[in-house]
Write a protein that binds this DNA or RNA. Structure first.
Lengths: 254, 254
DNA sequence: CGCTTTTATGCTAAAATTTTCATGAATATA
DNA sequence: TATATTCATGAAAATTTTAGCATAAAAGCG
C-alpha cells in the first residue's frame, strides 16, 4: 500500500483544530477535511470528542470556540479593557487559603473569570452571577449567601443576608462600588448599603476595585469613609493625577 | 459597520445578531438579511428562535433588545422542544399568590423563562441560575436559598440549605429529577438528595416535570416514592404507552 | 512471532437540519 | 382604504449528520 506521508496522529489533528479555533473562533468541517486531508467523518468525530471534553462548541457544519458565545457579553460589558486590567491587579492580592467575601458587579465578574486554576480559596458572595462564574473553578469553594434577590442589581439583600454575613470572618472583602469621592463610598440603594456595611464589618481588609470614572462621584447613601479602604485598585497607575488625592487617604493604591 | 463573511454558521449568525442588538437595541430583518447575505426568512427564523429562548423581543420587522446579561451561562438545552412543552403544561398549575419552591435544571429554567408577566408569585429556589431568570420577571418575588454551591449541578447544598428549607411552607415544589421508575425518584448525588427531601417535606404538593426519557431509569440514591408525586408532567400525552404504568401511581399526570 | 482485540478511518444510504422560494394572509403606514 | 411590508406555511433544494459496516493499522498477549 502507499504510505501516507502526511498522516497526522489523532491528537495532533485535534491540537491543530483547537489552534485553528482559537485563531478564528470557528471552523468548518469541510475546511478542516480539506486542510487535513481526512474525511469529514473523521473531523466530525474529532469535533464531537472535543465538544464532549467541553473544549469547543459543536454546531451544524463545524464548531465554535467557547469564548465566542461570550463575545457578545464581553462586548456588552462597559469599559471591558479597563476592568480586565483591574481584575489582573486584584488577583495578585489573592493567596492560598484565603476567605474572600465579594459583592456583585461586572468588575467582580472579570475577576472571577480570571481566577488562577491553582488557587485554593473560599468565596462568600451575594451575587448568583459571580457564584456561577466561580463554580467553574476547580478548587474554589463557593458559598452563596441566600436571601431576597434584588431585581435591579441581581444580588441578595435583606436582613437574612446581613445576619449571615455577620457570622462570617473573612480575610478580605472585594467591594464593587457605584460612587466614591475623598469623603467616602456611596450607593443609591439603601438595602444594598446595609449589606455592604455588613460585608466590611465581617472582613479584616477591604479592597475596592473600580474604574477611575467612578472616582469623585457621590450618590445618596454613604457606605463607609474612604479612609477605611485598605486597597484601592483602578485601571490607572497610582501615579496618575486622578489618583493623587486618594494616596493619602487609602492605605494602598494599585 | 456590518461586515459580510462567507458562510456563517447558524450559531455564529445568531451571536452576531445578539451583539448587534446589544449595541443598537434593535435590528431590522431587512438590514440583517443584507449584512449577513442570507434571506430574510432565515433572519426571521433566527429572530424567532432567539425570541423563543427569551434572548430578544420579536417585533414586526425585526427585534428589540431585552436587557440581558446571562448569555455566558446560556448553554444549549438538551431536548429543548420537549422541555418547552413541559414548561407550558407546568405553568398552568401556577396561581396568583402561590409560594413555589424549586430546584434547578434546564427544564425548570424553561419554566422560569416563560412565567407569564401577570403572575404574582413568590419563589424560593436553590438554583442561582433559576433565580437570575426569575429576577427578570416584574412581579415575582425571588428568594435565593443560600449555601455551598455544588460545582456540578450549580445548586446550593448542605445543612444550611436544608435548615432554611425546613422553615418554609410552600404551596408547591417543582422538582427537577435525574432518574425515576415505578418505585421512586432517584438521584446520583447524596447531598442533593438531602436537599430534595427537605423541599418535598416543606411543600403541600410535589410537581415533577421531566422528559419521558428519564422515566424507567434509576440511580444510586432514592429521593421519594413515586406514589408521593402529586403531578407528573412530561412532553407526552398522558395516554401514551410509556406513561400508562404511572397513571395508577401518581395523583395527576399532564 | 502469530493471533485476537481494539482503535481509527472511510464509505454508503438514510435521516435530519438548514436554507431558499413561492404563495396567500396579516400587518403597518401613508 | 390603498399600498407596501412583513409574516406564516409548505414544498423543494442543499447541506450536514447519523448509523452501520468494511478495512486497515495499532495494541495486547500467549
Amino acid at each position: 500500500m502507499l504510505t501516507n506521508r502526511n498522516s497526522m496522529l489523532k491528537k495532533e489533528r485535534q491540537a491543530f483544530i483547537i489552534k485553528e479555533i482559537n485563531l478564528h473562533n470557528k471552523v468548518l468541517s469541510s475546511d478542516l477535511s480539506m486542510a487535513l486531508d481526512v474525511s469529514e467523518d473523521t473531523i466530525r468525530r474529532d469535533l464531537n470528542e472535543l465538544a464532549m471534553e467541553g473544549r469547543v462548541v459543536k454546531v451544524h457544519g463545524g464548531a465554535l470556540s467557547k469564548s465566542y458565545q461570550m463575545a457578545a457579553v464581553q462586548a456588552d460589558t462597559y469599559a471591558y479593557e479597563k476592568k480586565e486590567v483591574i481584575a489582573m491587579k486584584t488577583l495578585k492580592l489573592f493567596k492560598d487559603g484565603m476567605v474572600i467575601l465579594t459583592s456583585g458587579g461586572t468588575t467582580m465578574r472579570e475577576i472571577a473569570k480570571r481566577l488562577p486554576e491553582s488557587l485554593q480559596v473560599t468565596f462568600f458572595t451575594i451575587s448568583p452571577l459571580i457564584a456561577l462564574e466561580l463554580a467553574e473553578h476547580p478548587k474554589a469553594d463557593v458559598i452563596l449567601l441566600g436571601g431576597q434577590l434584588s431585581n435591579a442589581s441581581k444580588v441578595t439583600i435583606g436582613a437574612e443576608v446581613v445576619q449571615k454575613i455577620s457570622e462570617i470572618k473573612a480575610d478580605i472583602c472585594i467591594l464593587g462600588i457605584n460612587g466614591m469621592d475623598l469623603d467616602g463610598i456611596t450607593d443609591s440603594d439603601y438595602e444594598i448599603v446595609q449589606v455592604k456595611k455588613a460585608m466590611i464589618k465581617a472582613s479584616k481588609q477591604m479592597i475596592i476595585p473600580t474604574i477611575s470614572e467612578k472616582l469623585n462621584t457621590a450618590l445618596r447613601y454613604k457606605v463607609t469613609p474612604t479612609a477605611d479602604i485598605d486597597c484601592l485598585i483602578t485601571e490607572l497607575s497610582p501615579l496618575h493625577d486622578t489618583i493623587q488625592p486618594y494616596l493619602s487617604q487609602v492605605k494602598l493604591v494599585l
